[in-house]
Simulated scan of single mutants.
Amino acid sequence: MPKNFDKIAVNFNSRNVEQLLLQLPLYQIFILITLAATLFIQLFYYLFFYARVAVKRQPQHSRPDQEPVSIVICARNEEENLRKNLPLIMEQAYPEYEVVVVNDCSEDGTADILSNFQKQYNNLRVTTVKVDEKFTHGKKLALTIGIKAAQHEFLLLTDADCYPNSTSWLHLMQENFIPTCNVTIGYGAYKPKKGALDKLVRCDTFFIGLQYLSFALAGIPYMGVGRNLAYRKSTFFANRGFASHYQLPSGDDDLFVSEVANGKNTLVEYRPQTITHSEQVSNFNAWTWQKLRHSVTSSRYKKGIKTLIWMEPITRVLLFATAIFLIAFTPLIWVGTGALVLRFIIQAIIFKVAQNRLLEKNLFLYSLAYDFASPFLYAFLGLKKTFSPKWN
């Protein structure tokens, strides 16, 4: 604390800001400038990007014709999930659609479950990929086979462990396929559970969803989730499918969207009836593996997108650090406190409204805590990736 603290306090009380700044040490002025810059960037993210999900009304596109749709699902050892979720897919309130399920080398009772469902639903089609000991493959091959088998131009993708929030899911997703739309990005939530892992998974999902939905609403689509994603069959083949990243274990959703989507051919759908829910991972290690697998694809995003993604948490940490320093070690307590309070108020409003829209219930307070902790969590994941041979 500087020796002339009392004098600075007097100057502050007299609102002589210029005199106050002149008496501050140079390093404190630098910290003050850093605080102002990072606060400005943080407010830009919240007011220009994230607020779109909270305040922008979902446009409703009038389509006189309900054109046929193919729902494509890949399933590997998904007997129980198919038993629970497939009827919710098969009973959508839509006049003409098919469901193509790719039985991808399943070793459980998936084939029997699908066979029984085929007797019940005439619009269920099953394609089987058999095990080949000389050739291993990931989801992209199975998904490509399912898309080739699909009979219709409009494709709606989800996973076997997902279920839609309503029987209007297909109808409302299909509404977005106006002539200029090639890709529709939806939101995929996780089914709430008890425990700390649930809060971690759902907070992380909400943060990521808020980001990719708001970026797409701003005309900068860069990813979607395979749990709730729609595009044209012709778009898939015009892009040569997943050819540019076929060797990667993931990327069938985010890298594909990154390649084909732009501000003119992409729409965002997040009405409550269109949200899907998925089963969560069973433990922290499984979630960590999931995040590391995704990091392999996120490293291949376009440079501008990666800059936008990483600038937010970096400036968040700098804002916290500079504000806490000013509060703890300088007379500028009001500056540090004011910066944190201003960001908190704007963040809290946007988070609360966006979580209500995305059906993320009972997550508000946890998401505020996650906002502070997530940069350190991702730093941990980065270190784990660096020192793990599997991801290098």
Rank of each mutant, 00 (worst) to 15 (best):
P331F: 04
I208L: 11
I178V: 12
N123L: 07
Y231S: 01
T274R: 01
A321F: 08
N182T: 05
T337Y: 12
L326F: 04
G263S: 08
K199A: 08
F364S: 11
I324R: 14
P389F: 09
E79A: 10
T307S: 12
F320V: 07
Y366Q: 13
Q19M: 15
A261Y: 02
K148Y: 08
A216H: 02
M90E: 03
F48K: 13
W310M: 14
W287T: 00
F49R: 00
L363W: 05
V268W: 01
P389I: 04
F344P: 07
G382M: 04
S250Q: 13
Y46A: 07
F376M: 09
K191F: 13
K361D: 14
I178G: 09
I41P: 00
T276G: 01
L340N: 09
Q174C: 08
I346L: 15
L172F: 15
D65E: 14
Y366L: 10
E259L: 12
D371V: 14
T297W: 03
P272S: 09
S244L: 12
G109V: 02
L86P: 00
P389A: 10
N165Y: 06
E153G: 01
R357S: 01
S14F: 14
F207Q: 06
L24Q: 09
V260P: 01
T127V: 12
L82V: 04
G219F: 08
T315P: 02
T276N: 05
K193C: 11
F372A: 15
L308W: 03
R293P: 03
T297A: 11
I309P: 00
D254M: 13
L141D: 06
Y45F: 09
V53K: 01
S70R: 00
N262K: 10
L319F: 10
R76D: 07
Y46G: 01
D204I: 04
A323I: 08
K194W: 12
F154C: 07
L248E: 04
F44W: 12
K139Q: 10
T266K: 09
V102E: 05
V317R: 06
V335L: 10
S374D: 12
P249K: 09
L267Y: 09
Q58R: 14
F242S: 02
E259V: 08
A196Q: 13
A218H: 10
A142F: 03
A36K: 02
F236P: 01
E98T: 05
T266Y: 10
R76M: 08
W310H: 15
Y222V: 01
K361M: 11
T128Y: 07
K3G: 10
F380K: 07
E153N: 02
L229A: 03
V101K: 04
G251S: 06
A238C: 10
T315D: 06
A93N: 14
K385E: 13
S62C: 13
T386R: 15
L124E: 03
P375G: 05
T337W: 15
L217G: 03
N239F: 13
A348H: 13
L86C: 03
A339M: 11
P2C: 13
L213E: 00
Q211E: 14
K56T: 12
K199L: 09
Y121A: 05
I275Q: 00
H171S: 12
S62F: 11
T307M: 15
A142V: 00
I350H: 01
V126P: 03
G186E: 01
K194F: 12
F242N: 02
G186R: 01
